[in-house]
């Protein structure tokens, strides 16, 4: 559940004996990346739309519980049925999208705003020991997987969405710092940076004018993948009862509540589970598709 290291770029392989007339592997690869991008964007779009619509309209109020309707199956009034308190499951799934996205946005923002400057600094500094120190600190953070740090935060600060966002964000810093440093090292060895340095441009100016635009693509890919991991971590934490607290709807919490009724009302687990999986799948596919488009190290290789 903790960070999955960035997957190695798929190498271009000379495929032996491609059937005549069929599209060669590079074209195939491109088509798959396009498909990833489109499907990923659609799934992410679906979750975003659900969350946005939930602010303006939900079938019922999130807090509305009608005990007489408890554990009802799907019907015209409740397309997804109701839970053990008689709350509308569709309403809760929609509002749960808010929390999933909020945790993703805030934690990715934390990780990006801290990790990218650290990584760029570690890649640009000419004092080798300083760069090494930053990366050692990074390794230290890697010893604290997101979910573990989130559990610690909930023990110290009390359970809640805020500590969960902070913990997942901090635990995601190393991923951004690594990607940013690797990209920066590559850019720094280029001739235009050499020219900029010869023209006596200051390091911050070089970072803004040359480094950031060039590593932007990789950072966006990392953000998409981190977003998926953040949703997973929040769902796990809320499932443990240590994340988002009732009465705020969250998918992980819904899964936890559903456990007592698995035998009689399995759909109570299936709906939030389906949306967790769709959201994570969406951000992962989006990351894959974007990687192919944006990562300069892949350009021209396929």
């Amino acid at each position: 559940m903790s960070s999955v290291p960035a997957e190695p770029a798929e190498p271009a392989v000379a495929e032996p004996a491609a059937p005549a007339g069929a599209a060669g592997p590079p074209a195939l690869r491109r088509r798959r990346a396009e498909a990833s991008l489109v499907i990923g964007a659609c799934l992410v779009g679906l979750v975003v739309v659900l969350a946005l619509v939930s602010f303006a309209w939900t079938p019922y109020e999130a807090g509305r519980a009608v005990p007489a309707d408890r554990l009802a199956g799907a019907s015209a009034a409740h397309p997804f049925g109701t839970d053990q308190y008689g709350r509308d499951t569709l309403t809760w799934v929609m509002c749960g999208a808010r929390i999933a996205l909020a945790v993703g946005v805030v934690s990715v923002a934390i990780a990006l705003l801290i990790g990218v400057p650290l990584g760029v600094f570690a890649g640009m500094t000419r004092r080798g020991w300083l760069g090494a120190l930053v990366m050692r600190g990074n390794d230290l953070l890697l010893a604290f997987p997101a979910l573990l740090l989130a559990i610690v935060f909930s023990a110290v600060f009390g359970p809640g969405t805020g500590p969960a966002m902070a913990a997942v964000g901090i635990a995601s810093i190393p991923g951004f710092a690594r990607v940013a440093r690797a990209g920066t090292l590559q850019v720094m060895s280029s001739e235009y940076v050499l020219a900029a340095r010869a023209a006596n441009r200051r390091p911050p100016a070089i970072a803004l004018a040359h480094v950031l635009p060039n590593i932007g693509g990789m950072i966006i890919v990392q953000a998409s993948v981190s977003f998926a991991l953040a949703i997973l971590a929040e769902a796990g934490l809320s499932f443990l009862g240590l994340g988002t607290q009732p009465p705020t709807p969250s998918w992980g919490r819904m899964l936890q509540d559903s456990q007592q009724f698995l035998g009689s009302r399995p759909e109570l687990a299936l709906w939030p589970g389906l949306f967790i999986a769709l959201a994570v799948l969406g951000f992962n596919l989006l990351g894959d598709g974007l990687r192919d488009r944006l990562d300069p190290t892949l350009r021209g290789r396929s």
């Binding site: 999986a277 994570v280 799948l281």
Partner: peptide
């Protein structure tokens, strides 16, 4: 790709 998107606790359920 689908397997990665399913958290292990959901797979357990």
């Amino acid at each position: 790709q689908v397997g990665i998107a399913v958290p292990s606790f959901l797979a357990g359920i």
